[in-house]
Simulated scan of single mutants.
Amino acid sequence: MIPGPHPYHHGELRAALIEAGLALARNGGPEAVGLREVTRSAGVTPNAAYRHFADRHALVLAVALEAQDRLAQAMLDRMDAAPERPDAAEHALERLRDVGLGYIHFARSEPGWFELAFLTQDEPGERPGVTVADGVPPPYQLLLDALDALVDAGVLTAERRENAEWACWSTVHGFADLVIRGPLRTQPPEVVEHLGTVAVETIIRGLRAGQQQPGVESDL
């Protein structure tokens, strides 16, 4: 028996459709997010979605942006849970470390949301809706802030800071993709955990090459 339309107050339906999209994407990735599937899950007719989303593409982008927010929050939670380090340089390095490891951990624990957040393709000729050209995604902003904090703490020079975010993001995103879709997906969790730490520490060593700070040690 098909349930009747669910009554939503003004402004609630859009949020409900996005939540329904997240629930579908959690196990099925971007391909699972369709207008019919989302509206059925929310308990409304397909026509109801068109009051908020012009088409499936607009819906997927909205759900992807919410997935980005969830990723950023997971990274923040890891950063906030880290013990306070009294030394400014050590604190800044720990923040960058947690940004990278938090990104990888989210990809491992929520592969459907992770794939949706950054692997959504924009339509040809459209202004990108999920990439950095249309604003800074929250997870990417956390990376920028962590790198800027390294400069403020004297760990990284302004010259070496330039474009460092792309090397960092490429490394952790590539590693995450190997874990959820590549050859690392069959490896035991402890192996993946170790290799992820190695990847992040390699980034940190590269950033600090030639400017080691006294008293600041890598975790590896």
Score class of each variant (00 low, 15 high):
residue 5 P to Y: 07
residue 9 H to F: 15
residue 10 H to Y: 14
residue 11 G to D: 04
residue 11 G to P: 00
residue 11 G to C: 11
residue 12 E to F: 01
residue 14 R to S: 02
residue 14 R to Q: 06
residue 15 A to V: 03
residue 16 A to P: 02
residue 18 I to P: 00
residue 21 G to L: 01
residue 24 L to S: 02
residue 29 G to W: 00
residue 31 E to G: 02
residue 31 E to H: 11
residue 34 G to R: 09
residue 34 G to W: 07
residue 35 L to E: 05
residue 35 L to P: 09
residue 38 V to C: 05
residue 38 V to W: 06
residue 40 R to G: 15
residue 40 R to Q: 14
residue 42 A to S: 05
residue 42 A to F: 04
residue 43 G to E: 01
residue 44 V to S: 07
residue 46 P to F: 08
residue 46 P to I: 10
residue 47 N to E: 15
residue 49 A to R: 01
residue 52 H to R: 07
residue 52 H to D: 01
residue 61 L to P: 00
residue 63 V to Q: 00
residue 65 L to G: 10
residue 65 L to P: 13
residue 66 E to G: 06
residue 71 L to P: 02
residue 73 Q to V: 09
residue 73 Q to S: 12
residue 78 R to W: 03
residue 82 A to P: 10
residue 87 D to V: 05
residue 91 H to I: 06
residue 91 H to N: 08
residue 92 A to P: 00
residue 96 L to K: 15
residue 99 V to R: 06
residue 100 G to E: 14
residue 100 G to T: 04
residue 107 A to W: 01
residue 107 A to F: 05
residue 107 A to P: 03
residue 108 R to Y: 13
residue 108 R to T: 06
residue 111 P to S: 12
residue 112 G to R: 00
residue 113 W to V: 01
residue 115 E to Y: 14
residue 116 L to Q: 04
residue 117 A to P: 03
residue 117 A to D: 13
residue 118 F to M: 05
residue 120 T to P: 06
residue 121 Q to L: 12
residue 122 D to P: 06
residue 123 E to C: 10
residue 124 P to F: 03
residue 128 P to V: 09
residue 131 T to I: 14
residue 132 V to I: 14
residue 133 A to I: 09
residue 134 D to C: 12
residue 134 D to T: 10
residue 136 V to I: 11
residue 138 P to M: 08
residue 142 L to T: 06
residue 143 L to T: 11
residue 143 L to R: 01
residue 143 L to P: 01
residue 143 L to H: 03
residue 145 D to Q: 13
residue 151 V to F: 10
residue 152 D to C: 06
residue 152 D to V: 14
residue 153 A to H: 08
residue 153 A to V: 13
residue 157 T to F: 13
residue 160 R to H: 12
residue 162 E to Q: 10
residue 163 N to S: 14
residue 165 E to F: 07
residue 168 C to K: 01
residue 168 C to I: 10
residue 169 W to G: 08
residue 170 S to H: 06
residue 170 S to P: 05
residue 170 S to Q: 12
residue 172 V to S: 06
residue 172 V to L: 07
residue 173 H to S: 14
residue 176 A to W: 07
residue 178 L to W: 09
residue 179 V to Q: 02
residue 184 L to S: 03
residue 184 L to C: 10
residue 184 L to P: 03
residue 185 R to D: 11
residue 187 Q to E: 15
residue 187 Q to V: 08
residue 188 P to K: 10
residue 188 P to G: 08
residue 189 P to G: 03
residue 198 V to E: 15
residue 201 E to V: 14
residue 201 E to M: 10
residue 203 I to A: 07
residue 203 I to Y: 06
residue 204 I to H: 15
residue 205 R to A: 15
residue 206 G to N: 11
residue 207 L to M: 07
residue 207 L to Q: 15
residue 215 G to Y: 09
residue 216 V to R: 08
residue 218 S to P: 07
residue 219 D to I: 09
